[in-house]
Design a protein around this nucleic acid. Structure first.
Lengths: 126, 126
DNA sequence: CTACGTGCAAAGGTTTTGCAACATT
DNA sequence: AATGTTGCAAAACCTTTGCACGTAG
């Protein structure tokens, strides 16, 4: 039986139950603190690092200077509001057949891609 | 007549004459030092910041933790070797007509996008 | 003398790690 | 007693800024 690990458990629970996408460590920490009362940044960091090592989470970089984590599932892209920073999921992969073209153009063996759209969300665009 | 500004001039010269894409500040600094003998990181930083403000350079983020700069020109995507970090240009935009689809799917007003392919360059893939 | 470019050093922000304390097995 | 989880603090890494110096106008 594993030892109690409230912080790690709460981080896991957040990813399992919440609909949120692309959690930053700070966002996770805020949520964990509201549940547990207290927690340290490094503990949350170690939790997501563990899950990333286990292959449960993917680390993504949206270009806003902070790492974000989300459950590893079907590939998709992201869209981030350039005004408020809100991040949502683009539920399709628009590049599935572009890789061959990229290979032809560059000679690289394409193994991954990462797309981030920028824009204004419904609230900010109004 | 402007004052002498060897560092700024040399950074400008690198962008004007070199074929390299997506310079990081450290890469610029190394190159400037090999030409001028000595230069400071902050001077190179201020040069690229100036050029970015002037609209001559674009800052891009390839997800490797360092800012990169390149001459503002026709929009294109990037591909980065996941092993050696080499960055090359993908001389097409594979997303020109995907924005409307993204808008329909998310409701965001799409104003930009950023694509980074990952892969293995010809040397590393062998 | 004034203004600008530069170097130096330090501040900021985020990620990462070392270490000791603590609790559970 | 041993081990794993956590908190605290500091290191590490990159970007950014404050300040003083030196030089050209």
């Amino acid at each position: 039986m594993p030892r109690p690990s409230p912080v790690t458990d709460e981080v896991r629970r957040l990813f399992e139950t919440q609909e949120r996408h692309a959690w930053s460590i700070d966002e996770l920490l805020t949520s964990v603190r509201s549940s547990l009362g207290a927690a340290d940044y490094s503990s949350v960091f170690r939790a997501v690092s563990l899950f990333e090592r286990e292959g449960v989470l993917d680390r993504i970089d949206l270009g806003d200077g902070r790492a974000r984590f989300e459950v590893r599932d079907d590939h998709h892209e992201h869209i981030r509001c350039e005004r408020c920073g809100r991040v949502e999921e683009v539920p399709v992969c628009v590049l599935d057949d572009a890789s061959a073209q990229v290979h032809n153009l560059t000679g690289f063996k394409v193994t991954s891609h990462r797309v981030v759209f920028g824009g204004l969300c419904r609230e900010c665009g109004a």
